[in-house]
Design a protein around this nucleic acid. Structure first.
Lengths: 84, 84
DNA sequence: ACTTTACTTAGACATTTGTCTAATTAACGA
DNA sequence: TCGTTAATTAGACAAATGTCTAAGTAAAGT
């Protein structure tokens, strides 16, 4: 839960998630959209993975990141307790 | 949106929100539950207010904090775009 | 009036965070 | 086998964050 909120607490990481809504993408393809260095994006992807918001598979040279939506259920569950 | 995720990215602040589910409470009453100093809790409450997650009204000596659930709709809306 | 109670503001400080450059690893292509 | 491309790891650094103590403000009690 901590890792989840931590991962979501950054506009770049949220934008990456939104990017991944359109389907899986390689680290490089993701990085192209942002004006940050590759290591920075790599670090963001790492935090997203720690929160289990994305998964990654190595495909040849590339590392393909995929959105994992099941984690959102946890968040929805937490939110739901406030909806009386 | 930034203020919202920022406010949620701390276990103490989330615990305060959960405390407030049981109804409004004064800053002091909230602070009693935690082993942090009053200024620290006051600061957390400030961040929650900045995110509009709580409102505060002064009642005599006391400052009563109330959960504002309407903000969760914004979060639910953001989440919803991922639920294909 | 003075003291106490409730809370916030101000300022300090260690830790965490987001970013960078440089170096490293791994796969591909000629 | 060598150079290129894709990505991560390592290390540095400024900025943001969470905590504290001390000081300030304001309402209530006596």
């Amino acid at each position: 839960m901590n890792a989840l909120f931590k991962a979501l607490n950054d506009p770049t990481r949220r934008a990456i998630l939104e990017r991944l809504r359109n389907g899986p993408a390689s680290a490089g393809a993701i990085a192209e959209q942002f004006h940050f260095s590759a290591p920075t994006i790599s670090h963001h992807l790492d935090l997203l993975r720690q929160a289990d918001l994305v998964t990654s598979q190595k495909q040849g040279q590339f590392v393909v990141y995929t959105l994992n939506m099941t984690v959102f259920d946890e968040l929805l569950g937490w939110l739901y307790q406030f909806k009386s």
